[in-house]
Amino acid sequence: MSIAVENLTKCFGPLCVFRDFSLVIGEGERLCLMGPSGVGKTTLFNLLLGLQRPDHGHIRGLEGRRMAAVFQEDRLCERLCATANVLLGCDGRAEPAQADALLEALLIEEEHRRRPVYELSGGMRRRVALARALLPNSAFLALDEPFKGLDEETRRQAAATVLAHTGGKTLLLITHDEREAQLLGARVFRLEPAAQP
């Protein structure tokens, strides 16, 4: 089932980020949302994940479906190790070996997987957040700058891992780098600032 954003309006005080905005993401499609800072990419991300409510309009196709996300911040449980953080995304419905395999694919070695994540570098933490989003059997995956802080080679490897684990899943990517959209084979959608009243 595709995801349909219909006539969406979302304002913060006098500033309207979306005004009568519509968008369709096809079933299993990979869509890359691009646009200047402040245009509403993260707001749309939050609206799709149900973390914010639209003032008007509807989002259809996500009701009751399992979702996963990489947020703008890593949002990890600092005192848990990398493996435990990844498993937490599945609420205990996965084996540690599955989490470890995913972390290994994202180039996180065993010695780092057993450490509390506050001891890891920014790039490693980002990949732990990515692994946490990839492991659950979700129908919709939203990734807000998932490759932030990764070097070119690690980014390619991370993108390959995303592709290997998202077959058939609907994917929303937010990035400022069009090459990341190409790496994931995603259709680019450019958000324009909403007209103000």
Binding site: L49, G50, L51, R66, M67, A68, A69, F71, E73, R75, C77, E78, R79, L80, A84, L88, G89, C90, D91, G92, R132, P136
Partner: peptide, 26 residues
């Protein structure tokens, strides 16, 4: 308690016991 972690728990549908143990208690 970190609001961002609570949002994460909501998106990932983390159960109440794990929320308590790993997000609230620390």
């Amino acid at each position: 308690v970190d609001r961002g972690l609570l949002e994460m728990a909501r998106v990932f549908r983390i159960g109440p016991l794990r929320r308590l143990l790993y997000i609230y208690l620390p």
